[in-house]
Amino acid sequence: MARYVLLIGFFIMIGGFAYMLNLTNTGEYNPRDIPTEFIGRAAPAINVPDLYNESEIVKTSDMQGKVWLFNVWGTWCPECWREHQYLMELSRSGVPIVGLNWRDERPEAKAMITKMGNPFIKIGYDPDSSVAIDWGVYGAPETFVINAQGVVVEKHAGGVTPVVWESKFKKHFVN
């Protein structure tokens, strides 16, 4: 009897292991993902100068009343290049996106935008992680959805793709 219990326990463990491994391989589970603490809380301030216009301060409060995306990117991040075309598409279809250029040099960041297009309404320039830390960012790209009341309702670590849009973001833009 005890032997059967042990055997069943062993198979449950193997099954669980295989299940998690499969989720990891298909990209549905990221063991390094850190769940955000911001869902349901007011979005933190941005308050850094714009990438193009140093005298203009990019602010969270500017977006009050709109559902918008806050996208953290850097020229050093290959996944950011990959998601860029899709951000362009979203922007063309009317989704307001505020960018945060993270840990970059101004000329390089501008060069990437010139080359690949600008999907952002505004781009905050954050070379020393001051905004990134305030938002609990730990990698790039990361994208937050903020609702009309200024509350963070969703966050995605990794590139934005049509699948991510359909499954996580779209529902917040319906009304």
Binding site: S130, I133, Y138, G139
Partner: peptide, 22 residues
């Protein structure tokens, strides 16, 4: 948060550096 098996003191990751400064 970048090299998750290190603390801020041991890590040379850029985010860790910025977090130490913070």
């Amino acid at each position: 948060l970048v090299c998750q098996n290190q603390n801020l003191a041991d890590s040379n990751a850029e985010l860790a550096q910025d977090m130490r400064i913070r």
